[in-house]
């Protein structure tokens, strides 16, 4: 088994700020997707969802506010799965609700070294 980090990216500006019912439906889609991964015994780490604010510390030690509201592809969350191959990881990622709001999932194998 290999470990893969799934990084969810989306544009905060185009994210739906819908009614409570829509938000609830969105939460349910995430819960069902993650529950489905767990039901296959492939969820290694539930990870976290991130809020839109942030800071960036640069090489010269200067600090800027994260430009997450401005850029199109902000990291909004991540989790870690354990599967045999990239193909299996891709299969799981294809069900991710982030794709419904035009976001994307980056899949990276975790180095075992």
């Amino acid at each position: 088994m290999k470990e893969f980090l799934l990084i969810f990216r989306a544009d905060y500006k185009t994210m739906p700020k819908g009614s409570p019912e829509e938000m609830q439906a969105m939460t349910k889609r995430w819960m069902d997707w993650i529950g489905g991964i767990a039901a296959q015994n492939k969820l290694l780490n539930i990870g976290n969802r991130l809020i839109s604010e942030g800071r960036v510390v640069k090489a010269n030690k200067s600090v800027t506010d994260g430009p997450y509201m401005e850029i199109k592809e902000s990291v909004v969350g991540y989790l870690i799965i354990k599967v045999e191959s990239y193909d299996k990881a891709i299969e799981i990622a294809k069900g991710c609700p982030i794709l419904n709001i035009d976001g994307n999932v980056e899949i990276r194998e975790v180095s075992q070294l």
């Binding site: 819960m31 069902d32 529950g35 767990a38 039901a39 015994n41 969820l43 539930i46």
Partner: peptide
């Protein structure tokens, strides 16, 4: 029940 199972599986498969 579904959401409880979703959470249960995250605690212990």
């Amino acid at each position: 029940i579904l959401q409880l199972y979703n959470q249960l599986l995250q605690i212990e498969y």
